Computed example of a mutant assay.
Amino acid sequence: MNLWFWLLLACVLAYAWKLMGYLVPAKLLENPRMSRVAGTMTIGLLASLTIVNTVASGQTLTADARLGALGAAAVALAFRAPFLLVVIIGAATAALLRLIGWN
């Protein structure tokens, strides 16, 4: 089977999963415990996506300028910098590290 089949299948499954969300009873969504679980899952998924995009290059793990940029952004967040400044600091750090040859 070709790539387009798998892509369309993934789109249909993702849309079906979204539609299933409308079938969840409202009473279940009002539960504070469910709200906490949903919030925690969102943070965990975003954190794992960030790490994978930082250290993965194809099928291998790499330590390049992205890792330094993530570290600089984490330090900026620890100092409670505004989000836009965190992004700028991360991008500038990656640019400087690539400039000095850490690819």
Rank of each mutant, 00 (worst) to 15 (best):
residue 3 L to P: 03
residue 4 W to A: 14
residue 4 W to G: 10
residue 5 F to C: 11
residue 5 F to R: 13
residue 6 W to S: 06
residue 7 L to T: 14
residue 9 L to I: 13
residue 9 L to E: 04
residue 11 C to R: 06
residue 15 Y to R: 05
residue 16 A to L: 12
residue 17 W to R: 11
residue 17 W to S: 14
residue 18 K to Q: 13
residue 19 L to D: 13
residue 20 M to I: 03
residue 21 G to T: 15
residue 21 G to V: 15
residue 23 L to A: 15
residue 24 V to I: 14
residue 24 V to H: 02
residue 30 E to C: 09
residue 31 N to Y: 11
residue 32 P to L: 07
residue 32 P to D: 08
residue 33 R to D: 04
residue 33 R to W: 02
residue 34 M to Y: 09
residue 35 S to Y: 11
residue 37 V to I: 13
residue 37 V to K: 04
residue 38 A to I: 13
residue 38 A to M: 12
residue 39 G to Y: 04
residue 40 T to N: 09
residue 40 T to K: 08
residue 40 T to E: 08
residue 41 M to L: 15
residue 41 M to W: 12
residue 45 L to A: 12
residue 46 L to C: 06
residue 47 A to V: 12
residue 50 T to S: 11
residue 50 T to I: 08
residue 50 T to C: 11
residue 51 I to E: 10
residue 52 V to D: 07
residue 53 N to A: 11
residue 53 N to Y: 13
residue 53 N to E: 09
residue 53 N to M: 14
residue 55 V to P: 09
residue 55 V to L: 12
residue 56 A to M: 15
residue 56 A to K: 14
residue 56 A to C: 14
residue 56 A to P: 02
residue 58 G to N: 11
residue 59 Q to A: 12
residue 59 Q to M: 09
residue 59 Q to G: 06
residue 61 L to Y: 10
residue 62 T to R: 08
residue 63 A to W: 12
residue 63 A to V: 13
residue 64 D to H: 06
residue 64 D to S: 07
residue 65 A to K: 02
residue 66 R to T: 04
residue 67 L to Y: 07
residue 67 L to I: 13
residue 69 A to G: 05
residue 70 L to R: 03
residue 71 G to V: 04
residue 71 G to F: 01
residue 71 G to T: 01
residue 71 G to Q: 01
residue 72 A to L: 14
residue 73 A to K: 01
residue 75 V to Y: 03
residue 76 A to L: 05
residue 79 F to T: 05
residue 82 P to H: 10
residue 82 P to F: 02
residue 82 P to Q: 11
residue 83 F to N: 03
residue 83 F to A: 07
residue 84 L to W: 08
residue 84 L to Y: 07
residue 86 V to M: 03
residue 87 V to G: 00
residue 87 V to K: 00
residue 88 I to A: 13
residue 88 I to R: 02
residue 88 I to N: 02
residue 90 G to I: 00
residue 91 A to D: 03
residue 91 A to G: 05
residue 91 A to P: 04
residue 92 A to R: 01
residue 93 T to W: 00
residue 93 T to Q: 03
residue 96 L to I: 12
residue 96 L to S: 03
residue 97 L to C: 08
residue 97 L to W: 09
residue 100 I to F: 14
